[in-house]
Simulated assay, not measured.
Amino acid sequence: MTIAEKTGNTREPRRVTAAMVAAHAGVSTATVSLVANGKSSGRVSAKNEQRVREAIRELGYFVDSIGSSLAKGVSSLVVLVAPDISNPFFAKVIAGVRSVLASDYQLMLSVTDAGVSPSASETRKILGLRPAGLLVHAPSQEFLDEIGGNLPMVALDAPGISPKFPAVNMDVAQGARDVVAHFAAQGHTKAAYLDAITGTETLAVRREAFLEAAGDYGIEVLPSSVASSMIDVNAASTVFSQQWTIWQEAGVTALGCATDNHAFGVLHATRGLGIRIPDQLAVAGFDDLPYSATSNPAITSVQLNAQEGGRLAALKLRALLEGKDPEPLQSMLPSSLVVRGSTVIGGDH
Protein backbone atom coordinates (compact mmCIF):
# COMPACT_ATOMS: atom_id res chain seq x y z
CA MET A 1 0.00 0.00 0.00
CA THR A 2 1.33 3.42 -0.96
CA ILE A 3 1.49 6.40 1.40
CA ALA A 4 -1.23 8.06 -0.67
CA GLU A 5 -3.51 5.06 -0.18
CA LYS A 6 -2.80 4.97 3.56
CA THR A 7 -3.55 8.66 4.03
CA GLY A 8 -6.39 8.85 1.55
CA ASN A 9 -4.59 11.58 -0.35
CA THR A 10 -4.46 10.40 -3.96
CA ARG A 11 -3.75 13.76 -5.53
CA GLU A 12 -0.46 14.16 -7.38
CA PRO A 13 1.96 16.38 -5.44
CA ARG A 14 1.99 19.91 -6.83
CA ARG A 15 5.27 21.01 -8.37
CA VAL A 16 6.18 24.41 -6.98
CA THR A 17 7.86 26.69 -9.51
CA ALA A 18 10.04 29.76 -9.15
CA ALA A 19 7.21 31.80 -10.65
CA MET A 20 4.88 30.66 -7.85
CA VAL A 21 7.45 31.64 -5.22
CA ALA A 22 7.95 35.00 -6.91
CA ALA A 23 4.22 35.69 -6.92
CA HIS A 24 3.93 34.66 -3.26
CA ALA A 25 6.84 36.90 -2.23
CA GLY A 26 5.99 39.78 -4.56
CA VAL A 27 9.35 39.73 -6.32
CA SER A 28 10.68 38.73 -9.74
CA THR A 29 11.63 35.17 -10.69
CA ALA A 30 15.19 36.42 -11.18
CA THR A 31 15.28 37.43 -7.51
CA VAL A 32 14.00 33.99 -6.49
CA SER A 33 16.72 32.38 -8.59
CA LEU A 34 19.45 34.45 -6.95
CA VAL A 35 18.27 33.62 -3.44
CA ALA A 36 17.60 29.93 -4.10
CA ASN A 37 21.04 29.45 -5.66
CA GLY A 38 22.91 31.31 -2.93
CA LYS A 39 23.93 34.22 -5.15
CA SER A 40 21.95 37.01 -3.49
CA SER A 41 24.80 38.71 -1.64
CA GLY A 42 25.05 42.35 -2.77
CA ARG A 43 22.36 41.77 -5.40
CA VAL A 44 19.14 41.37 -3.39
CA SER A 45 18.02 43.54 -0.48
CA ALA A 46 17.81 41.93 2.94
CA LYS A 47 14.05 42.58 3.00
CA ASN A 48 13.40 40.86 -0.32
CA GLU A 49 15.72 37.99 0.54
CA GLN A 50 13.79 37.38 3.75
CA ARG A 51 10.47 37.44 1.87
CA VAL A 52 11.77 34.96 -0.71
CA ARG A 53 13.10 32.60 1.97
CA GLU A 54 9.76 32.67 3.79
CA ALA A 55 7.94 31.92 0.54
CA ILE A 56 10.33 29.05 -0.24
CA ARG A 57 9.74 27.58 3.20
CA GLU A 58 5.95 27.98 3.08
CA LEU A 59 5.58 26.54 -0.42
CA GLY A 60 8.25 23.83 -0.11
CA TYR A 61 10.16 25.02 -3.17
CA PHE A 62 13.48 23.53 -4.28
CA VAL A 63 15.62 24.08 -7.34
CA ASP A 64 14.97 21.40 -9.98
CA SER A 65 18.60 20.60 -10.74
CA ILE A 66 17.75 17.64 -12.96
CA GLY A 67 15.38 19.70 -15.06
CA SER A 68 17.96 22.45 -15.28
CA SER A 69 20.67 20.02 -16.36
CA LEU A 70 18.39 18.60 -19.04
CA ALA A 71 17.77 22.09 -20.37
CA LYS A 72 21.42 23.13 -20.30
CA GLY A 73 22.94 19.74 -21.08
CA VAL A 74 25.05 19.89 -17.90
CA SER A 75 24.40 20.19 -14.16
CA SER A 76 26.15 22.08 -11.37
CA LEU A 77 27.42 18.80 -9.92
CA VAL A 78 31.11 18.05 -9.56
CA VAL A 79 31.78 14.40 -8.74
CA LEU A 80 34.75 13.34 -6.61
CA VAL A 81 35.57 9.67 -7.16
CA ALA A 82 37.54 8.49 -4.13
CA PRO A 83 38.01 5.43 -1.89
CA ASP A 84 37.25 5.11 1.80
CA ILE A 85 35.92 8.58 2.67
CA SER A 86 36.03 7.57 6.36
CA ASN A 87 39.79 8.07 6.02
CA PRO A 88 40.70 11.57 7.34
CA PHE A 89 43.02 12.01 4.34
CA PHE A 90 40.00 12.34 2.06
CA ALA A 91 38.23 14.68 4.46
CA LYS A 92 41.14 17.05 3.85
CA VAL A 93 40.93 16.56 0.08
CA ILE A 94 37.22 17.41 0.22
CA ALA A 95 37.91 20.54 2.28
CA GLY A 96 40.41 21.69 -0.35
CA VAL A 97 37.98 21.06 -3.20
CA ARG A 98 35.14 22.87 -1.46
CA SER A 99 37.31 25.92 -0.78
CA VAL A 100 37.42 26.50 -4.55
CA LEU A 101 34.14 25.14 -5.90
CA ALA A 102 31.53 25.30 -3.12
CA SER A 103 30.17 28.72 -4.11
CA ASP A 104 29.18 27.59 -7.62
CA TYR A 105 29.01 23.79 -7.63
CA GLN A 106 27.57 20.96 -5.57
CA LEU A 107 30.14 18.30 -4.64
CA MET A 108 28.97 14.71 -4.98
CA LEU A 109 31.02 11.74 -3.76
CA SER A 110 31.34 8.44 -5.59
CA VAL A 111 33.04 5.93 -3.29
CA THR A 112 35.18 3.01 -4.45
CA ASP A 113 36.58 0.24 -2.24
CA ALA A 114 39.53 1.27 -0.07
CA GLY A 115 42.74 1.44 -2.09
CA VAL A 116 41.09 0.22 -5.29
CA SER A 117 41.39 2.03 -8.60
CA PRO A 118 38.08 3.50 -9.78
CA SER A 119 36.11 1.50 -12.33
CA ALA A 120 35.22 3.15 -15.62
CA SER A 121 32.00 1.13 -15.85
CA GLU A 122 30.85 2.26 -12.39
CA THR A 123 31.87 5.86 -12.97
CA ARG A 124 30.09 5.93 -16.32
CA LYS A 125 26.79 5.38 -14.50
CA ILE A 126 27.27 8.74 -12.81
CA LEU A 127 27.53 10.49 -16.15
CA GLY A 128 23.76 10.12 -16.47
CA LEU A 129 23.54 12.92 -13.90
CA ARG A 130 25.34 15.14 -16.40
CA PRO A 131 28.02 16.38 -13.99
CA ALA A 132 29.93 19.52 -14.87
CA GLY A 133 33.20 17.70 -14.21
CA LEU A 134 35.02 14.89 -12.40
CA LEU A 135 37.81 14.77 -9.85
CA VAL A 136 39.22 11.23 -9.68
CA HIS A 137 41.63 9.85 -7.09
CA ALA A 138 44.30 7.42 -8.28
CA PRO A 139 42.85 6.56 -11.70
CA SER A 140 44.75 4.32 -14.09
CA GLN A 141 45.54 5.45 -17.63
CA GLU A 142 43.13 2.77 -18.81
CA PHE A 143 40.35 4.39 -16.77
CA LEU A 144 41.07 7.81 -18.27
CA ASP A 145 41.11 6.37 -21.79
CA GLU A 146 37.80 4.57 -21.25
CA ILE A 147 35.98 7.58 -19.80
CA GLY A 148 37.47 9.90 -22.43
CA GLY A 149 35.13 12.32 -24.15
CA ASN A 150 34.95 16.05 -23.56
CA LEU A 151 33.98 15.91 -19.89
CA PRO A 152 36.31 18.13 -17.82
CA MET A 153 38.30 15.83 -15.52
CA VAL A 154 41.30 16.12 -13.20
CA ALA A 155 43.24 13.27 -11.57
CA LEU A 156 44.64 13.30 -8.05
CA ASP A 157 47.63 11.23 -6.89
CA ALA A 158 47.96 9.42 -10.20
CA PRO A 159 51.64 8.90 -11.07
CA GLY A 160 52.25 7.18 -14.37
CA ILE A 161 49.38 8.71 -16.33
CA SER A 162 49.95 10.68 -19.52
CA PRO A 163 51.67 14.04 -18.97
CA LYS A 164 48.97 15.50 -21.23
CA PHE A 165 46.23 14.87 -18.65
CA PRO A 166 45.43 17.45 -15.91
CA ALA A 167 46.60 16.10 -12.56
CA VAL A 168 47.84 16.90 -9.08
CA ASN A 169 50.39 14.39 -7.82
CA MET A 170 52.22 14.02 -4.53
CA ASP A 171 55.88 13.13 -4.31
CA VAL A 172 55.33 9.77 -2.64
CA ALA A 173 58.58 8.37 -4.08
CA GLN A 174 60.62 10.98 -2.22
CA GLY A 175 58.62 10.24 0.90
CA ALA A 176 59.52 6.55 0.69
CA ARG A 177 63.17 7.43 0.15
CA ASP A 178 63.07 9.69 3.22
CA VAL A 179 61.75 6.81 5.34
CA VAL A 180 64.63 4.57 4.24
CA ALA A 181 67.19 7.33 4.81
CA HIS A 182 65.81 7.77 8.31
CA PHE A 183 66.07 4.04 8.99
CA ALA A 184 69.66 4.05 7.76
CA ALA A 185 70.52 7.01 9.99
CA GLN A 186 69.20 5.03 12.97
CA GLY A 187 71.56 2.16 12.12
CA HIS A 188 69.05 -0.33 10.73
CA THR A 189 70.43 -2.83 8.24
CA LYS A 190 67.47 -5.19 7.74
CA ALA A 191 63.94 -4.01 7.01
CA ALA A 192 60.51 -5.22 5.92
CA TYR A 193 57.65 -3.59 4.04
CA LEU A 194 53.91 -3.96 4.59
CA ASP A 195 52.19 -3.11 1.32
CA ALA A 196 48.53 -2.68 0.36
CA ILE A 197 46.56 -5.18 -1.71
CA THR A 198 45.62 -2.73 -4.42
CA GLY A 199 46.10 -1.95 -8.07
CA THR A 200 46.70 1.77 -7.63
CA GLU A 201 49.89 3.18 -9.09
CA THR A 202 50.54 5.55 -6.19
CA LEU A 203 50.92 2.65 -3.74
CA ALA A 204 53.09 0.73 -6.20
CA VAL A 205 55.37 3.78 -6.46
CA ARG A 206 55.74 3.90 -2.67
CA ARG A 207 56.76 0.24 -2.51
CA GLU A 208 59.20 0.38 -5.42
CA ALA A 209 60.83 3.58 -4.15
CA PHE A 210 61.23 2.04 -0.69
CA LEU A 211 62.86 -1.10 -2.05
CA GLU A 212 65.15 0.82 -4.42
CA ALA A 213 66.26 3.20 -1.68
CA ALA A 214 66.88 0.26 0.66
CA GLY A 215 69.31 -1.12 -1.90
CA ASP A 216 71.02 2.26 -2.22
CA TYR A 217 71.47 2.54 1.55
CA GLY A 218 72.59 -1.05 2.03
CA ILE A 219 69.48 -2.09 3.94
CA GLU A 220 68.49 -5.69 3.20
CA VAL A 221 64.83 -6.34 2.37
CA LEU A 222 64.36 -10.01 1.56
CA PRO A 223 61.47 -11.12 -0.71
CA SER A 224 60.00 -12.86 2.34
CA SER A 225 60.11 -9.52 4.16
CA VAL A 226 57.51 -7.94 1.88
CA ALA A 227 53.88 -8.67 2.74
CA SER A 228 50.55 -7.03 1.96
CA SER A 229 47.09 -6.56 3.39
CA MET A 230 43.94 -4.57 2.80
CA ILE A 231 44.05 -0.93 3.91
CA ASP A 232 42.43 -1.84 7.19
CA VAL A 233 43.76 -1.81 10.75
CA ASN A 234 42.54 -5.31 11.62
CA ALA A 235 43.76 -6.81 8.36
CA ALA A 236 47.20 -5.24 8.79
CA SER A 237 47.38 -6.46 12.38
CA THR A 238 46.58 -10.02 11.29
CA VAL A 239 49.15 -10.07 8.47
CA PHE A 240 51.88 -8.62 10.69
CA SER A 241 51.18 -11.23 13.38
CA GLN A 242 51.50 -13.97 10.76
CA GLN A 243 54.78 -12.57 9.39
CA TRP A 244 56.57 -11.47 12.55
CA THR A 245 58.27 -14.79 13.37
CA ILE A 246 59.73 -14.96 9.84
CA TRP A 247 60.81 -11.32 9.94
CA GLN A 248 62.29 -11.62 13.41
CA GLU A 249 64.35 -14.65 12.36
CA ALA A 250 65.59 -12.64 9.35
CA GLY A 251 66.82 -9.93 11.72
CA VAL A 252 64.30 -7.25 10.69
CA THR A 253 64.42 -4.20 12.96
CA ALA A 254 62.58 -1.62 10.80
CA LEU A 255 59.24 -1.74 9.00
CA GLY A 256 57.90 0.60 6.34
CA CYS A 257 54.12 0.69 5.89
CA ALA A 258 52.21 1.74 2.77
CA THR A 259 49.72 3.76 4.84
CA ASP A 260 49.23 4.92 8.41
CA ASN A 261 46.28 2.54 8.69
CA HIS A 262 48.74 -0.29 8.15
CA ALA A 263 51.00 1.20 10.82
CA PHE A 264 48.07 1.42 13.26
CA GLY A 265 47.44 -2.29 12.66
CA VAL A 266 51.10 -3.09 13.32
CA LEU A 267 51.08 -1.19 16.62
CA HIS A 268 47.95 -3.08 17.64
CA ALA A 269 49.62 -6.41 16.88
CA THR A 270 52.90 -5.56 18.62
CA ARG A 271 51.10 -4.90 21.90
CA GLY A 272 49.67 -8.40 21.86
CA LEU A 273 53.01 -9.92 20.86
CA GLY A 274 54.99 -7.98 23.47
CA ILE A 275 57.18 -6.25 20.86
CA ARG A 276 58.70 -2.98 22.09
CA ILE A 277 58.39 -0.06 19.66
CA PRO A 278 60.83 1.35 18.62
CA ASP A 279 63.38 -0.64 20.70
CA GLN A 280 62.80 -3.95 18.88
CA LEU A 281 61.09 -2.63 15.77
CA ALA A 282 60.94 0.84 14.20
CA VAL A 283 57.65 1.47 12.33
CA ALA A 284 56.94 4.23 9.79
CA GLY A 285 53.78 4.96 7.82
CA PHE A 286 52.39 7.16 5.07
CA ASP A 287 49.81 9.99 4.92
CA ASP A 288 50.35 11.46 8.43
CA LEU A 289 46.73 11.07 9.50
CA PRO A 290 45.54 13.15 12.50
CA TYR A 291 45.62 10.11 14.82
CA SER A 292 49.24 9.39 13.91
CA ALA A 293 50.43 12.16 16.20
CA THR A 294 48.37 10.93 19.17
CA SER A 295 48.81 7.14 19.00
CA ASN A 296 51.06 5.43 21.52
CA PRO A 297 53.75 5.67 20.40
CA ALA A 298 53.11 8.43 17.89
CA ILE A 299 53.79 7.24 14.35
CA THR A 300 56.61 8.47 12.16
CA SER A 301 54.88 9.21 8.86
CA VAL A 302 55.27 10.78 5.44
CA GLN A 303 53.13 13.89 5.41
CA LEU A 304 51.14 14.56 2.23
CA ASN A 305 49.28 17.85 1.89
CA ALA A 306 45.86 16.44 1.07
CA GLN A 307 44.00 19.72 1.47
CA GLU A 308 46.33 21.57 -0.88
CA GLY A 309 46.05 18.68 -3.32
CA GLY A 310 42.27 19.01 -3.31
CA ARG A 311 42.50 22.78 -3.72
CA LEU A 312 44.90 22.62 -6.68
CA ALA A 313 42.83 19.90 -8.37
CA ALA A 314 39.70 22.02 -7.98
CA LEU A 315 41.49 25.06 -9.46
CA LYS A 316 42.51 23.00 -12.49
CA LEU A 317 38.95 21.73 -12.88
CA ARG A 318 37.52 25.24 -12.59
CA ALA A 319 39.88 26.38 -15.36
CA LEU A 320 38.63 23.55 -17.57
CA LEU A 321 35.01 24.43 -16.78
CA GLU A 322 35.73 27.99 -17.86
CA GLY A 323 37.23 26.81 -21.15
CA LYS A 324 40.82 27.50 -20.13
CA ASP A 325 43.93 25.34 -19.97
CA PRO A 326 45.15 24.71 -16.40
CA GLU A 327 48.53 26.23 -15.65
CA PRO A 328 50.50 24.11 -15.09
CA LEU A 329 48.73 21.10 -16.54
CA GLN A 330 50.21 18.83 -13.86
CA SER A 331 51.43 19.78 -10.40
CA MET A 332 53.66 17.88 -7.96
CA LEU A 333 53.29 18.54 -4.23
CA PRO A 334 56.30 17.82 -2.01
CA SER A 335 56.17 15.34 0.86
CA SER A 336 57.93 15.57 4.21
CA LEU A 337 58.85 13.02 6.87
CA VAL A 338 57.51 13.70 10.36
CA VAL A 339 59.66 11.77 12.84
CA ARG A 340 57.94 10.55 16.00
CA GLY A 341 58.27 7.94 18.70
CA SER A 342 57.59 4.87 16.56
CA THR A 343 61.10 5.09 15.10
CA VAL A 344 63.08 7.14 17.63
CA ILE A 345 62.80 7.04 21.41
CA GLY A 346 61.40 10.44 22.35
CA GLY A 347 61.35 11.36 18.65
CA ASP A 348 59.06 14.15 17.43
CA HIS A 349 60.59 16.37 14.72
Score class of each variant (00 low, 15 high):
A192W: 05
A235F: 11
F143Q: 06
V233F: 10
A191T: 02
N169R: 07
R130F: 05
A181S: 14
L194D: 09
L134T: 04
A196Q: 13
G160C: 08
V179S: 09
A192M: 05
Q174L: 15
E212S: 12
A184S: 13
A167E: 02
I147V: 09
M170R: 10
V172I: 00
I161A: 06
S228V: 03
G133C: 04
A132I: 02
S241N: 06
V168F: 09
H182P: 15
E142Y: 08
E201S: 15
A191F: 11
D195A: 13
Y193C: 01
A191Q: 06
R206I: 03
F210Y: 14
Q174S: 15
I231W: 13
D195C: 06
A227S: 12
V179G: 10
E212A: 11
L135N: 07
P152L: 00
D145F: 09
A213G: 14
T238F: 12
I219N: 14
Q141K: 13
R207S: 04
V180Q: 04
Y217V: 09
F210W: 10
I161W: 04
F240T: 03
A167M: 00
P166L: 00
Q186E: 03
G215H: 15
G175E: 05
A209H: 14
V233W: 08
V226G: 11
I147N: 04
A235Y: 07
N234R: 01
R206H: 12
N234E: 15
T238G: 10
L129V: 04
S237W: 06
V239H: 03
A132E: 00
G148R: 07
G187R: 03
A181W: 02
S140G: 08
E220C: 11
